[in-house]
């Protein structure tokens, strides 16, 4: 039994210690917004925040988590907040998602980027966001990130 901190709560998780955080979130805690895409850390569909940094949760074993604080897409906009996180708002305004499967991971990656760089250049956005979107929603993502960044700064 491991105790992990997810979305501000201490949660007891009975999964095997070598279970990737991705599967513990999805199957033990029912947090299915975090998606399985590749299992090798290549696609980013499973991106969550670990102590504020974007990590690919398929590459983090439960036993390696320690006291790290995990935030998933379900808690990106805190329950007490009335509105969605600026990145989520920008994603709707720019109408980014198509199938939507990769978007929670994409949004988590972008939110972490904006947390450490509130005004990223287009070049930074293109270099730093390396999640795969098979629907090819990329053309709208740069604009949406910049819109979200402007919103975060104000």
């Amino acid at each position: 039994m491991a105790t992990i901190t997810v979305n501000g709560q201490q949660r007891d998780v009975s999964a095997d210690p070598d279970t990737p955080l991705l599967w513990a979130l999805r199957e033990e805690l029912g947090l299915t917004g975090t998606k399985f895409g590749c299992g090798v850390g290549a696609c980013g569909a499973c991106t969550v925040h670990l102590d504020g940094e974007a990590v690919r949760s398929c590459q983090v074993a439960l036993s390696d988590l320690g006291t790290g604080k995990v935030v998933t897409i379900e808690a990106l906009s805190p329950a007490q907040a009335k509105a969605l996180h600026p990145v989520q708002q920008a994603w709707i305004a720019a109408q980014v998602p198509q199938c939507g499967y990769c978007q929670p991971g994409m949004i988590m990656a972008v939110a972490a980027l904006l947390a450490r760089d509130p005004d990223p250049t287009e070049e930074t956005i293109r270099e730093q966001i390396t999640n795969i979107c098979r629907c090819g929603t990329y053309p709208r993502i740069v604009a949406a990130v910049r819109q979200a960044a402007a919103s975060v700064r104000t």
Binding site: G33, K35, I73, S77, L84, Q95, P97, G100, P104
Partner: peptide, 15 residues
């Protein structure tokens, strides 16, 4: 469908 897709609440087959 965008709201569900940006909040992680859309139910895909894997969910």
């Amino acid at each position: 469908d965008l709201y569900a897709k940006v909040t992680g609440t859309a139910t895909f087959g894997i969910d």
